[in-house]
Design a protein around this nucleic acid. Structure first.
Length: 860
RNA sequence: GCCGGCGUGGCGGAACGGCAGACGCGGCGGACUCAAAAUCCGCUGUCCUCACGGGCAUGAGGGUUCAAGUCCCUCCGCCGGCACCA
């Protein structure tokens, strides 16, 4: 650190204000006086209440790095600003304390995760407090406290009652390193989002939440919130709603017919052209398509290898090949199966289906490019208008029939195209090779053909989602136990609410078993229990909830953190909800933020919360990169520790610097050199205060005059507006300009000095409180009224008018504010400099902007 | 591949379609000092010019406009998301 100090500030004779003492003093003051404790005070009308929330941290062993406090500083400044503007502000903090890292660390070191988690929370709390944030610490929650997770379990029971939590034996994403199943949202590029191990498929018993039941509302209600468009878009894409049709294709009676036609690439030309009758029983293949208008171009079908019909329809001749393919597909990882670079593979089943619109018999194949988990697990293949089908058809020599042509093209006019198209296109157009429908536009045809299929009872309009149900159980120890028992007689039985919380038991070993069972499976006494229904012996559920569970609803618990009877008291909920501003990292765009919205909507439907959406406005803070412009990481050795910065420059410098770096939402590199500039700005405040104490400057009661008055009013206006809109960087810049001017004054107007201190309050609260006290103020500035400005005092009485000739600036002159535009033009044209550029040329046009500019357009 | 976002001095970044580069860092020069540190003052996009002044500049190229960093189109680069979802 000494080297650090020497490099940036010089070892000797630093002018440095005593920030360490000041910051300790005021942190103690706020804590002892509970300055930021907040109540449901009804003297504040609804519009004067704000709920400002930070994404609470996961207390890792590494402690805070400079990225963490960025969002926290932003919300803190905003909250302090709001309080001074007369708002009652709920601003809480807590800890997302269940989860894998703590557990892994515990396994490594042999300490209980509860112990390390507690220590980590302690450390985080101290580090956060060292930055002087104005949280109401009386509302702190930790998701691993039984008093908290009692209600997480309670919400789970509500989900269970509503049929939104169910057990399923299904193939899941399994991380071999974390030894647990993962939700789809936790898998990125086929890797575990946390540890980047390739996930494998594993079939085990799971708890799953029916988030898909809320897909439409999760999509629609994005309209209700003020969130970054990018995040909304990510959620929309993740939900992935599509409209199309499900269509039934009858399986052709005699296997083997037309096989030669298919293998020679002649389409269904040899098949009968009569309309097929509606299929009955399970003698059909149902597909989902978003392009029912291309039905005439469906020349083959593909089933996912796992499809139930595969076994049934495969002909004896193809049996061996099909079984081998299915076997191979099962062994492949999801990543291998979805690898786009690879060529398409597949096997013909030997069976044929009947295209319901033209009666052609088309071959049925299996291929792993069709996913069992989407739609019906089967597709009609239209190689002329789908890239994947095109590739497959080319690979296996299957027929390709064009059924859409560009509007106005020759093909469109002809209506019939005999040749195979040269390329695949998914573009809309008009129908060709589609019998009576030729010439119909794609959009119209979609509707018409669905009507037709519906009337024949073989198809209907269908909506599909990419969103899958939420895999909710983890085969790990450090999480909320799922409050159900398994009874041989009564099956899965939820615990009665009155028995909650179901305490996570102490265990000898919390090492994950890797077998698909959690360590809780080895806890004899806890495991064996009685069934709440029949009283007979039963076994507890051994899976635990994922880390996301606790964070799904923590914002609600802050409202009433100590309520032992309800998860939150309705009147308090009514007082504070919804969250007005939520600030956190963009990495939660489709994880926490989707899960949380889902739970909130369930609670809304049950009448437990009063808003459809939990978070009205969302802001993602940008990442703070290392000085090398790279992501901060231990391995790169570019991590900046806030403790060091606070020790060397003070918490206030740290806070103001992080806000001065640039806009909150963008990523930007840390620069300790840049921090020095901010530090000097704060020292200037201190120096002014010292000069006042020493008498080299004096405080005068006269109001500032002239330019100084204008600067003061303008600064108040700018800092007010910028603080309100979270543009803290430009607010700080404005304060710098004002403080530079103030430092030059020997006679400092009291109103100027006090306004400066008050505006600094939210940004550098420790220093501001100290300076405020030094002015003789009796009370903290935390709720002192924010300074106001006078609009008239902001205005210039003289304006500099820019004169352009053909858009280039040639001269400028001063005119009284509000001078008529024609008068400005007149004056501009008479200027000698302007005449140099205009004489001998024809003036085509003169554009004037009041109080700003004259542009003379000349020709020749 | 598809969908977003972003490209401005040596650096972080400012800029209702109307003076590009506020503010800060760094650099250069000066004051103070025996000297240094700290502090204060001045200069600091680039090219031409002794100067006055002028040209060129917001990733590249087009366009709209009296006027474009800002709006539109094409392209390049970086970052993020999705990835055979029929």
């Amino acid at each position: 650190m000494l080297a650090f100090r020497a490099r940036f500030r010089g070892v000797f004779g630093m002018a440095k204000y005593p920030f360490t003492e000041i910051e300790k003093k005021w942190q103690r003051h706020w804590e002892v006086n509970k300055t930021f404790r907040v109540h449901e005070d009804y003297s504040f009308p609804k519009e004067k209440r704000r709920y400002v929330l930070d994404m609470f941290p996961y207390p890792s062993g590494a402690g805070l790095h400079v990225g963490h406090p960025e969002g926290y500083t932003a919300t803190d400044i905003y909250c302090r600003f709001l309080r001074m503007r007369g708002y009652n502000v709920l601003h809480p903090m807590g800890f997302d304390a269940f989860g894998l890292p703590a557990e892994n660390y515990a396994i490594q070191t042999g300490t209980h995760p509860a112990v390390t988690t507690k220590a980590n929370i302690q450390r985080f709390r101290e580090q956060i407090k060292a930055l002087g944030f104005s949280y109401d610490w009386d509302r702190e929650v930790s998701t691993c406290d039984a008093d908290y997770y009692k209600w997480t379990q309670w919400i789970f029971l509500k989900l269970f009652d509503k049929g939104l939590a169910y057990e399923a034996e299904m193939p899941i994403n399994w991380c071999p390193s974390c030894k647990t199943g993962l939700a789809n949202e936790e898998v990125k590029d086929g890797e575990c989002d946390r540890c980047h191990t390739k996930v494998v498929r594993k079939r085990i018993r799971q708890w799953v939440l029916r988030i898909t039941a809320y897909a439409d509302r999760l999509l629609e209600d994005l309209e209700l919130v003020d969130w970054p468009e990018a995040v909304k878009l990510m959620q929309r894409n993740w939900i992935g709603r599509s409209e199309g049709a499900s269509v039934r294709f009858a399986i052709a009676s005699g296997p083997g017919q037309g096989g030669a036609a298919a293998s020679t690439g002649q389409g269904g030309a040899a098949a009968s052209t009569g309309a097929a009758s509606a299929p009955v029983g399970d003698n059909f293949i149902e597909v989902y398509t978003t392009r029912p208008d291309t039905l005439f171009g469906a020349t083959y079908m593909v089933l996912a290898p796992e499809h139930a019909l595969v076994e049934k329809i495969t002909t004896p001749a193809q049996k061996a090949a099909v079984e081998a393919y299915v076997e191979a597909a099962t062994k492949k990882s999801d990543l291998e199966r979805t690898d786009l670079a690879k060529d398409k593979t597949g096997v013909f089943t030997g069976a044929f289906a009947v295209n319901p619109v033209n009666g052609h018999q088309i071959p049925v194949w299996i291929s792993d490019y069709v996913l069992i988990s989407y739609g019906t697990g089967a597709i009609m293949a239209v190689p002329a208008h789908d890239d994947r089908d095109w590739d497959f058809a080319k690979e296996f020599g299957l027929p390709i029939v064009q059924v859409v042509a560009a509007e106005g093209s020759e093909e469109a006019r002809a209506g019939t195209v005999a040749a195979e198209p040269a390329a695949c296109t998914a573009a809309d157009g008009v129908a060709v090779n589609s019998g009576e429908w030729n010439g119909t536009s794609t959009a119209v045809f979609k509707t018409k053909i669905i009507e037709g299929l519906e009337s024949r009872g073989i198809g209907k309009k269908t909506v599909n989602y990419k969103l899958r149900d939420w895999l909710f159980s983890r085969q790990r120890y450090w999480g909320e136990p799922i409050p159900v028992v398994h009874c041989p007689k009564d099956g899965v039985v939820p615990l009665p609410e009155s028995t909650l919380p179901l305490i996570l038991p102490e265990v000898k070993s919390y090492t994950p078993t890797g077998t698909g069972e959690s360590p809780l499976a080895n806890t004899g006494a806890w495991l064996d229990t009685t069934c709440p229904v029949c009283g007979g012996p039963a076994r507890r559920e051994t899976n635990t909830m994922p880390q996301w569970a606790g964070s799904c609803w923590y914002y609600l618990r802050y409202i009433d953190p100590n309520n032992a009877h309800e998860f939150v008291q309705p009147s308090r909920l009514e007082y504070w909800m919804p969250v007005d501003l939520y600030v956190g990292g963009a990495e939660h765009a489709v994880l926490h933020l989707l899960y949380s919205r889902f739970w909130h909507k369930v609670l809304y439907d049950l009448g437990f919360v009063n808003t459809k959406e939990p978070f009205l406005r969302l802001v993602n803070q940008g990442m703070i990169l290392g000085e090398d412009n790279q992501k901060m990481s231990k391995s790169r050795g570019n991590v900046i520790n806030p403790d060091d910065i606070i020790r060397e420059f003070g918490a206030d410098s740290m806070r103001v610097y992080e806000m001065f770096m640039g806009p909150l939402e963008v990523s930007k590199p840390w620069s300790t050199a840049g921090l020095v500039g901010v530090s000097r700005f704060l020292e200037r405040f201190w120096a002014i205060s010292e000069a006042l104490a020493e008498g080299t400057k004096r405080l005068v009661d006269e109001a500032p005059q002239g330019d100084l008055s204008k600067l003061l009013h303008r600064t108040i206006k700018k800092v007010t507006n910028d603080s309100d809109t979270l543009n803290f960087n430009t607010a700080i810049s404005a304060m710098m300009i004002l403080s530079n001017e103030a430092a030059k004054l020997e006679a400092l107007p009291r109103s100027l000095w006090e306004s400066m201190i008050l505006m600094l309050g939210p940004y550098a609260p420790h220093l501001a409180e100290e300076l405020w006290e030094r002015t003789g103020a009796a009370d903290t500035l935390a709720r002192h009224p924010w300074p106001s400005w006078d609009e008239a005092s902001c205005a210039d009485e003289q304006k500099e008018i820019v004169v352009q000739v053909n858009g280039k600036i040639r001269e400028r002159f001063v005119a009284p504010a509000g001078t008529a535009e024609d008068r400005l033009a007149e004056r501009a044209r008479a200027l000698p400099k302007v005449l140099e550029w205009t004489t001998g040329k024809e003036v085509v046009k003169v554009v004037t902007v009041k109080d700003k500019l004259v542009n003379i357009v000349v020709k020749g």
